[in-house]
Amino acid sequence: MAPSTSSVITLTINGEKHTLPVDHRTTLLDALREQLDLTGTKKGCDQGQCGACTVLLDGRRAVSCLQLAVAAEGREVTTIEGVAEGDELHPVQQAFLDLDGYQCGYCTPGQICSALAVLEEHAAGWPSAATADVRPEAGPPPLSPDEIRERMSGNLCRCGAYVSIVQAVARAAEARTAGTEEALA
């Protein structure tokens, strides 16, 4: 018997539950954009080759164009629309705005979601391809510009705003560190 080719699923997006029917072919990206009118997540290549569609899945960054919506059932999705606290921009968003970390703005939601995850990944001690010594004994690498560049490389920007993107991520990282120190003090 031919299997059913659609399902009714429940997605938790930006803390809110949404129940919707999906064609199994529908990617999380298309479900967000076409069915839930969450168009902040952008489609740049639809093939996992640009990062414009980056969202957070259970707190980790992922490209929503290669994530089937049906396979995301039960997972927590955070999109760019869920990053700010009401009218108050997240420090990463504020840094992108203040330092002009974009031009056309199309890759920006993906850059910002990716940057949020970079800060978490770094805080968790994850190494990157820019880390000279990945052994745990070497300790976590400082979030240098080269580390930021490598970690943000999954988000292409054709306008070429990389220099200010790196500065924005660095500023957000400083704000975060300062915030953590304040909390500890």
Partner: peptide
Amino acid sequence: TRVEGREKVTGAARYAGDIP
């Protein structure tokens, strides 16, 4: 800073394929 900056960093800016 860009006048439409806030729209761009919050995902509110709608591009041609985003208009419902």
